[in-house]
Simulated scan of single mutants.
Amino acid sequence: MTTNVLYAQIQWSGGEHKFSLPMHDEWPLRHGLNDPYPRLKRILDGEWTVIDVVEVVRAGLIGGRAFKAADPALTLMVRDHVEKRPLAEGAALAKAILMAAVFGIPAEIADKPQSAIEVLELVGGV
């Protein structure tokens, strides 16, 4: 039986990072990410907002322990690699982060760096 984990190691324009949305951590709760389904639905339906994309990527980096919430480097990373790039690219990344948080990734491949599209293929989100 395959065990799923709620994170993914994703290779993206900002480098390679572990993205996770641990719903029990208080940072996502304070920023409205305690219930990922509305954001996931908007992203799946193509009705996402810039805020949806930015906040999911930001929370995913914090949850994956790549940055602390108050780290200025986090703000620069999100600005340079989400806000200043094509938004559809960021939306695919946000979708992959949310799908991993909701459906999980097989543990045996979760630590292998993958693109957002590869993560989406794993969880049936493409």
Rank of each mutant, 00 (worst) to 15 (best):
G46C: 11
V56H: 02
V119Y: 10
A116P: 08
V54D: 07
W48E: 13
A101D: 01
D80C: 09
L98P: 10
N34P: 09
H17C: 03
K84Q: 12
D52S: 03
Q9V: 00
F103V: 11
E16R: 13
V57Y: 03
I97A: 04
A69K: 10
N34T: 07
G124R: 12
K18N: 02
I43C: 08
P113Q: 03
D71V: 11
I97K: 02
G64I: 11
V56K: 01
R65V: 05
S115C: 06
G63S: 06
I10D: 11
V50H: 08
E83D: 14
I62P: 05
V82K: 03
D71F: 10
I62D: 05
R30K: 12
I117K: 15
A110C: 08
G32K: 05
L87I: 15
G46R: 07
I97H: 03
K84L: 14
Y37C: 06
L87F: 01
M77W: 03
E108Q: 13
G63W: 05
E83I: 13
E16W: 00
F67W: 08
N4W: 01
A100F: 12
M23K: 03
P113L: 11
L76M: 14
E55W: 07
L61R: 02
E89N: 08
R79P: 04
L33E: 15
T75I: 13
S13A: 13
E16G: 03
N4G: 03
N4L: 09
G14D: 13
L40H: 11
E26S: 06
L61D: 04
E83R: 07
V126D: 07
H17Q: 10
F19V: 00
G124Q: 11
K41W: 02
L29C: 07
V53Q: 01
R85A: 13
D25R: 14
K18M: 08
A92W: 05
V54L: 09
L120C: 09
V123R: 08
A70P: 00
L44C: 09
H24Q: 14
M99V: 14
R85H: 09
I109M: 13
I117V: 15
E16D: 14
H31C: 04
L74Y: 11
A94L: 07
E108G: 14
Y37W: 10
M99A: 12
Q9L: 01
D111E: 14
